[in-house]
Structure formats: C-alpha cells, structure tokens
Design a protein around this nucleic acid. Structure first.
Lengths: 225, 225
DNA sequence: CTCCCGTGTATCCTATAGGATTATTCTTGA
DNA sequence: TCAAGAATAATCCTATAGGATACACGGGAG
C-alpha cells in the first residue's frame, strides 16, 4: 500500500516524466492483462531489451511491484509473477473488503459530489450493456473496478481508498484467471447501491454495499468448491 | 502494503540472505529512530559508501520504501524521507485504525493461542514498568507497537495484519516526532483489553480496543490544536 | 535402464564510467 | 548593500562490463 504522506494522491504540478513510472505501468498492465501468467518468471534482461531501457528502471519498477505483492523475488533466481490466490487468502481478502467497502459507501453517501455521481451512473449503464453480452468480460471487470474505486474515493479517506485499490488489483487478477461471467446479478446490486447514494441514505448505502460484497463472495467462492 | 501472495508471511525454508533486504532494514531502522529526519534528503551515493555496497541494492530498498510511503522520490532530485503527517491524514489514519483494530481484537479473542497470550502479558508488564519512568519513551513506543501487532497477528487475517503493520509504522514516526509521554493511561486500557481476551469475550475485547484507539486519538489530537 | 555427475548456457548481482540536471557559490554591476 | 548571472560542484540517471550462481543437458558408471 502506498501511504504517500508527502505527495498528494494526484500531483497538481507538472512532474517530469520518470522512466521508472513508465516501466512500472507497462509491467503492471502486462500483469493485469495476463500477458504475464501467474507464477511465470520475469527476466530483467528480456524486459530491458524489449522496452529499450536499461536494467535499473526495470529493477525499480519490479521492487515496487514486489512491495505491492504482485511479483515475488527469489535471491539469485529472479522475479516471478505472484501465484494465484488460495482459499485462505481469498477469505481474508473478502473479510477485509466487507469491513472497508460498506463503511466507504456509508461515508460516500454524504460526501459524494454530483459530478462523481454522474460518473457512477455512466459506469453502471455501461456495465448493464455488458450484461447483454455486447461487451467482453474483461471490460466489465475493468468498469466494475472503476465503480468500486470511485466510491472508495468519494469516501474522502485516501488511506481507505489506497488500501482498497490494492485489494481490487488482486481481485482483478483472480477474476481474470477464473474468467467469471455472471455479471447480470451484480448490475441489480449496483442499481440498489446507486439509489441509496442518490437518496443520501447512509444506512441503506452501507447495507447495499454489504450485500453486494457478500453476494460477490458467494459467486466466486464456488471456484474453490 | 505487502500482500505477498506467493511467499507465506514467514518463510519456513532457508532463504539465502538478500543484500537488498539488509539494506532495507538498515534504512528502515534509521527512519524509525529518526536518524534520518522527516523531509530530509537521502543521498544514494552516501548510503552506498557508508554501507559498503553498490547503488543497485540501495535503489531497490528505496523503491520498496517508496511504495510503502516512507520515502518519496522526485525526478532528477532524488529520494527524501516523507514529511510529517498533517491533520487530515492523521484523522484518516485513525478512522482506518478504528475500523480494523476492534475487529482484529474481536477475532483474536477466540483465536489467540496461550503462547501468544503469554507474550501479550509480558509486553503489558514491561510497559507498566516504563510507566514508572524506568524505561525511555522510545522503548514504550516499541513495546506498544509489538502489543498491537501481536493482536493483529492473532486475528488470523494476514491481510489485516499487514495493513495495520503499515499504519503503525507511520504512527510510530508520528509519536516519535511529537515525543508523547503520557503512557500511564494507556496501560490501564491495555489491562482491560487483556482481561477481555483472557475471558475470550469477543464483544468486550472489541469494545476495549475501540475505547483504547479513541482515547489514543484524543491524546495525540492535541498536537494539532 | 536408472542414477549420478560434469559441462555449458542463461540469468542475476555488483561495480564502474559517462551524460544530464539541479543546487550552490562566487563574481560583477547597479 | 543587494541583485542577477555564470561557473563549479554534487547528485542522480543510464548504460555497459565482469563475476557468481542456478538450471538444463548429456555422458558415463552401476
């Protein structure tokens, strides 16, 4: 998790482009799109050649990803993508989500701006379309991630927002691996949550998010059978 | 936050010593002991010379610390220790603590082992001695950190444990900076918590932790006045 | 046929050198 | 005396080379 005490969540002033950040985003995207499969090794030399940069920025990016838990490093062997989640960690992740997300929804009910709310509606609309099979599942997963991220952001607590962002990163990889499809039920839950937020009803928003996360747990839990 | 999907929280098998880890721990200790003051710059060259290693492991360690939020990096300027917390972030941190720690105490009430419980008593005893002024405050802060960390560990949820560990890292720096002293009241709160845990009373443990964190907030909140 | 062991290749880890940028200091002029 | 500009020094960033280690393959002995 990046607590980042010094630099505000988003940088208002111009920041000279850091080569390391670019590399970080590239590797991050390759992990998220499963171009790099879980558990497979990641060669520093190859990455350096492919991206046309030196080894140093690669190492920095991989170190940051290691602190984030997305890659692991073994001495004298190298980096490799983190392996898939097991049941224990899956349960722990949902336990934490169930603690943070309903709380974030509650706070968002009173703090969300009209602009953020409009974005929320738009995301829900796009996801509804994807429920009709017109959008690929990876798009749905991306939209769903933005949906939850926006609510966490609207909670006003940056720490909670950053913590949840990390959790959802691992959620995304988990979903992609099992290519879950049933998205139609999630849409109705999102609708209920949006209604509660529109009414500025904190209790209802918290409860709606709780139900949504619990249902999500039930849906994915079957993968472990 | 290190989610570390692949390597279990503690490594059972022998791991060849990584030079980067050693450097990481050294810099981490220097930050925690305020040998490196908040906001001050951190020279890579100097560190490399002082520690007798190359620049590469220094960079890796600093990148990990950056992901953790303890240092910040500015392009073409270098690394510097994170600046002191402001009021907004302080409130956010306690809001998150108040969400996680009582929950962890509740779970720990049913899951804590007798061995862990003994360690808890020992820590509380040492802190009580420090309340009589026989131990320095930095020692008290360290013991208190171990106390809370152990409860988070006993909760059985590694993710919550790791998240709280990061939060307490920043708490430690905050306390050290303001060199808070009043520790006597905290000891009675710890005693109440231990009693609840001993009785395996989940409700009481959760409530005791909640009160403890809230009181802690009140104590430190005066620094912003 | 199986197991053990030596060699070769690939990769990581470290160290050093060169280019680029910023901060500091000194000089000069008003 | 103060301000502005230039030169120097320090630092970071990148690139490349050399040493060390682990993994893979193939040959030989039992």
């Amino acid at each position: 998790m990046a607590i980042s005490t010094n630099p505000p969540p988003s940088n208002p002033i111009k920041r000279p482009p850091r080569l390391g950040d670019e590399v970080y985003n590239t590797i991050y995207a390759q992990l998220m799109s499963q171009k790099i499969l879980p558990g497979s090794r990641i060669s520093i030399d190859n990455l350096a050649r492919e991206m046309g940069v030196s080894q140093t920025p690669i190492r920095e990016a991989l170190s940051r990803l290691e602190a984030q838990g997305l890659v692991v490093k073994t001495h004298l062997i190298g980096f490799s993508a983190a392996s898939q989640m097991d049941r224990t960690r899956f349960d722990q992740l949902y336990e934490l989500r169930l603690l943070l997300e309903p709380f974030a929804a509650r706070k968002a009910a009173t703090l969300i701006t009209t602009e953020q709310f409009d974005t929320l509606r738009r995301l829900a609309a796009e996801m509804a379309v994807s429920g009709q099979g017109r959008v690929s599942y990876s798009d749905f997963a991306r939209l769903d991630g933005q949906f939850h991220d926006l609510i966490a952001l609207a909670s006003g607590n940056d720490l909670i927002h950053e913590t949840l962002a990390n959790l959802h990163t691992h959620m995304h990889l988990f979903r992609l691996f099992h290519h879950q499809q049933a998205a139609s039920t999630a849409n109705t839950e999102h609708a209920e949550l949006i209604d509660a937020l529109e009414a500025r009803d904190a209790d209802r928003a918290e409860q709606a998010m709780r139900v949504h996360v619990e249902r999500s747990y039930d849906r994915f839990s079957t993968f472990f059978s």
